[in-house]
Design a protein around this nucleic acid. Structure first.
Length: 679
DNA sequence: CTGCCTGATCTTTTT
DNA sequence: GATCAGGCAG
């Protein structure tokens, strides 16, 4: 594909964004306005104008976005493989920098990364150590506080108005201990990746200078989702040159609750003088009526940059609103409707999505779908619980890669059981402490520990031997997959699985996971340029291999939360449970600005729809076991009357309008089938 | 260790 | 009302 032809296909605004290469640029990209296309074309264009390969940096939040962009840029750069931008997530960009430079901060180079569950077990063990057993505090909330303070995003109101609450006090006590523990374990958490890179840049201007020289053109995707640390990092890297292009949509900022700072995008012009602002308002996704509904809703927000979506396409059918009796009725009605549309119009089930506020609402829809034997897939939820075997084996790999990771060592040492009980572990840990050595070294020297039984010390020594033997093998051997397989065989992990899971089906599934895990290592090894165990563990930490597989297998009707739906599109969308206390959520009503975020959520949901949009709510809904009356969401009133079609007899509809709607819909089936891949 | 009971909680999620 | 974590007894 030729870059000039690509540019010729853009609209005026998009072109403006692509061709404006020097100085700060803010691209306000409305939903469905071809945002990704602009970023990728811009990257390709920059390289085309002769800018050095590797000087163009595009930062995203998710691996999925990064992957998609790489693919598209690559296809535009056909024949010029030597020219390619750096496209990376915040986290993996920082990880790469730290791998190279972290010694300047007094850390070791061979660190490994802890995921959330490992952070939690570390915290639990710290709380145990300080004999803090107050069960009114959840470890999760302590971790949340620590993470917030690491990201420098605790709202002032927390510290000042409410004073220091109890959770804050305990978090303040635990934070330094947690930090210290990570350092001795030679481990970083996700927040550290960003935070330490920022620290590195601040404390070592020469290093920052290096990276500023390297990345001369910076682009940031989903800028409305950046937090304080990310903002500082980008600002520092952009330096005086300020060839910084940020792309985002303040109207789609829905992650304020986890630290995203809407101010970053709203104040961009102020922060970077001379900013050029380009608004992308032409929408290529949805019919006009859907956009009118979206515009009508979002314009009620005070904190936003004024803009409004439009389409060169048709108005399409009106937005359908249905009031159900209760939650079950709502689910039944939605599924009947899906069934009807799919039968009449011969569209595949993949064309439908049901969007809700909280994952718990998927339940009645799942049941109704199952009853009708309609295929579906639920996106999100916490399904990553059932991967114990992955965590077990990852613990082995982690202690092999990082001999200081005591926590992983403990997990590995007892799975499968190796006859090392509480007291033996206690003695080993004390010995390590007294001699200020790592736990693994203590295992090696278990023979020296007085009061440790011969059986226990034998076990410990044997385990330490196993780890060091495999450390060597992983270092030397080029076939890590094979080495790993022999490790799992040596520890009889398969037998352990069969022992653990009574039913054969469960055991078989686990064994499949085990096999899949080994395969993913082999696969990583053959794909990558210079594979290493550390590299594999990084991929594991920064990308969820299992989850990505699930995404691909996603079949049938999609059940999804507002949050997860961002960035996706579906021909026919149902938004369910549009009621007060659900949307806006009950807990958002007291928080300043939170209702506006709820409104954005609704806006995101509406703008997922390409051809048809259905909004449902109920008269009564079962809440906490009680059947309580429900009130339609205040946001419903914000949709202009003329684009609404009531399907519940609340309003008399003009039969002629109905016929017109049906015709519009029919006329667009072709488009619906052929336009899944926009842009 | 396992399984049962009790009580607390009931938004959203990526890396 | 359902679910899950943590406590406690066996």
């Amino acid at each position: 594909m030729d870059i000039n032809r690509e540019i010729a296909r853009l609209n005026t605004r998009q072109k403006e964004a692509v061709m404006h290469t020097e100085g700060p640029l803010l691209v306000l990209a409305g939903a469905g306005s071809g945002k990704t296309r602009v970023i990728t074309t811009r990257a390709a264009y920059l390289l085309h104008t002769g800018i050095q390969s590797g000087s163009v940096l595009a930062v995203t939040f998710t691996n999925k976005a990064a992957r998609e962009m790489k693919k598209r840029v690559l296809s535009m750069l056909n024949g010029k493989k030597n020219r390619r931008p750096v496209i990376s997530t915040f986290h993996s960009l920082c990880l790469n920098i730290l791998r190279r430079e972290i010694e300047h901060l007094g850390y070791r180079k061979d660190f490994t990364i802890y995921d959330t569950s490992e952070q939690l077990s570390l915290l639990r063990s710290i709380l145990n150590d300080i004999k803090f057993h107050d069960k009114s505090f959840k470890v999760e909330s302590v971790l949340d506080r620590i993470s917030r303070s690491k990201n420098n995003i605790i709202p002032l109101s927390d510290k000042e108005s409410s004073g220091q609450d109890d959770l804050g006090i305990i978090s303040d006590v635990v934070y330094p201990k947690y930090h210290e523990a990570l350092k001795t374990l030679n481990v970083l958490d996700f927040d550290d990746l960003l935070l330490l890179t920022l620290k590195l840049f601040r404390e070592h201007p020469a290093i920052l200078e290096n990276y500023m020289e390297r990345f001369r053109y910076i682009m940031v995707d989903e800028y409305q989702d950046t937090n304080r640390v990310q903002y500082d990092f980008i600002k520092l890297l952009a330096g005086e040159r300020k060839n910084l292009c940020v792309v985002g949509d303040d109207d789609q900022s829905i992650y304020g609750w986890r630290g995203a700072n809407l101010g970053n995008i709203l104040d961009f012009e102020k922060d970077f003088s001379g900013t050029v602002v380009v608004r992308l308002e032409q929408n290529y996704r949805s019919f006009g009526h859907i956009l009118q509904a979206a515009n009508g809703v979002i314009k009620n927000n005070k904190k936003r940059m004024d803009k409004s979506l439009w389409t060169a396409g048709g108005a399409g059918p009106r937005v359908n609103i249905f009031k159900a009796v209760d939650g079950d009725d709502e689910a039944r009605w939605v599924i009947d409707r899906i069934s009807l549309i799919q039968y009449e119009k011969r569209i595949s089930y993949e064309a439908f999505a049901i969007i809700y506020r909280a994952n718990i609402f998927s339940r009645p829809f799942e049941e109704a779908l199952r009853r009708k034997r309609i295929p579906y897939s639920v996106v999100g939820g916490t399904s990553y619980f059932d991967r114990k075997e992955i965590k077990d084996l990852a613990a082995y790999l982690k202690i092999i890669a990082n001999s200081r990771d005591d926590l992983s060592l403990l997990r590995a040492a007892n799975t499968p059981r190796r006859g090392l009980g509480h007291s033996a572990i206690r003695k080993l840990a004390d010995f390590a402490q007294d001699n200020s050595i790592s736990l693994l070294e203590a295992f090696m020297r278990a023979g020296e520990i007085t009061g440790l039984g011969t059986r226990a010390s034998g076990s410990a020594i044997e385990f330490a031997g196993l780890i060091s033997r495999y450390s060597d093998l992983f270092m030397k051997n080029r076939e890590m997959g094979k080495v790993f397989r022999s490790l799992t065989e040596e520890i009889n992990y398969r037998d352990y699985i069969y022992e653990l899971y009574k039913t054969p089906e469960a055991a078989v599934r686990r064994v499949e996971n085990l096999e899949g895990f080994i395969d993913s290592l082999s696969h990583y090894e053959t794909e990558g340029k210079s594979p290493s165990l550390h590299g594999f563990l990084e991929t594991l930490a920064l990308t969820d291999l299992l989850k990505e597989k699930e995404e691909k297998t996603g079949r049938g009707v999609t059940l999804i939360s507002f949050h997860s739906s961002k960035g996706l599109e579906f021909p026919v969308v149902f938004i369910a449970g549009v009621e007060e206390d659900i949307l806006p959520h009950k807990k958002s009503m007291y928080l300043d600005g939170a209702v506006e975020e709820e409104r954005r959520l609704f806006y995101v949901g509406i703008t997922r729809a390409m051809k048809e949009l259905y909004i449902t709510y109920t008269d009564h809904r079962v809440k906490y076991g009680k059947n309580a009356p429900a009130t339609p969401s205040r946001f419903l009133d914000e949709i202009p009357d003329e684009v609404i079609k009531r399907l519940d007899g609340t309003e008399k509809t003009d039969p002629k309008q109905d016929e017109k709607d049906a015709n519009d819909f029919f006329a667009n089936i072709q488009a619906m089938l052929g336009s899944r891949n926009k842009n």
